[in-house]
């Protein structure tokens, strides 16, 4: 008998004569207290994100590239990791090409092993899309893809995330349900709620522990 067989046999033996507990899932408890009027939804998301040092800006589909450029310029950042294979990456590239900004765009188009050193030490900022947001907790939903891999939203000190206002849901239950998560999960799914932080030294909150030191969320009101 393997360890698995022995463990399962012990557990089964302990359940003899018992009946499984019924599934009386109370979705109302996870949704009713966390509902927001259409006008308040984005405000709630912003206030939750800002409470944990996330920066948010309301902008539009047309204007966000300029906002991103300004944010980078304000931080003296001359290089951005962004996918050339996404619609937003192409929009940004076009905007950069048309502007006088000397921003260098860099793609994550090889396996991480091939450029770890550069990713970790010479990539000051990244920009990715999101799959939506959650108002109740001020969270972004990311399902990393081959175009926007997992480390894009983790390693660079500044992460700029694009969020379509129409894709912000009230709570996690609603979002999971609407996006059919249970029918197929990706390799990695993430909820991101602010920049990386820790309170491990005498309960004093410090930002920029191991992940991004700053998170800037550009909210596209007309998308």
């Amino acid at each position: 008998m393997s360890a698995k067989d022995r463990i399962l046999a012990k557990l089964r033996g302990s359940l003899v004569g018992t009946t499984p507990v019924a599934d009386d899932y109370d979705a109302g408890l996870l949704t009713e207290p966390w509902r927001y009027a259409a006008d308040d939804r984005i405000a709630r998301l912003r206030s939750m994100l800002e409470a944990v040092h996330g920066e948010t800006q309301l902008t539009t589909q047309a204007d966000w590239p300029q906002r991103a450029l300004e944010a980078l310029a304000a931080r003296n950042i001359g290089e951005l990791l962004v996918s050339p294979d996404t619609a937003h990456g192409q929009q940004l590239a076009a905007h950069v090409a048309a502007s006088a900004a000397g921003l260098r765009l860099k793609a994550y188009h090889q396996p991480v092993e091939a450029w770890k050193e550069e990713l970790f030490f010479r990539t000051p900022a990244s920009l990715t899309g999101t799959l939506g947001g959650i108002a109740a907790t001020g969270s972004l939903v990311l399902w990393p893809t081959p175009q926007e891999p997992r480390l894009m939203s983790l390693v660079p000190p500044l992460h700029i995330a694009l969020l379509k206002a129409s894709e912000v849901r009230d709570n996690l239950y609603e979002l999971m349900h609407a996006q059919h998560w249970a029918s197929g999960m990706p390799t990695n799914a993430l909820l991101v709620s602010g920049p990386s932080k820790t309170a491990d030294i005498q309960q004093t909150l410090a930002y920029g522990a191991h992940g991004p030191k700053e998170l800037l969320v550009l909210i596209l009101e007309d998308a």
Partner: peptide, 24 residues
């Protein structure tokens, strides 16, 4: 645990890197 509405990261892992993925 820490009096947070949610932690900064909720990390859900369902498998190793797939053939077309670049990290993980």
């Amino acid at each position: 645990a820490t009096g947070q509405a949610i932690t900064t990261y909720v990390n859900m892992i369902s498998g190793p890197r797939k053939a077309d993925e670049l990290d993980g």
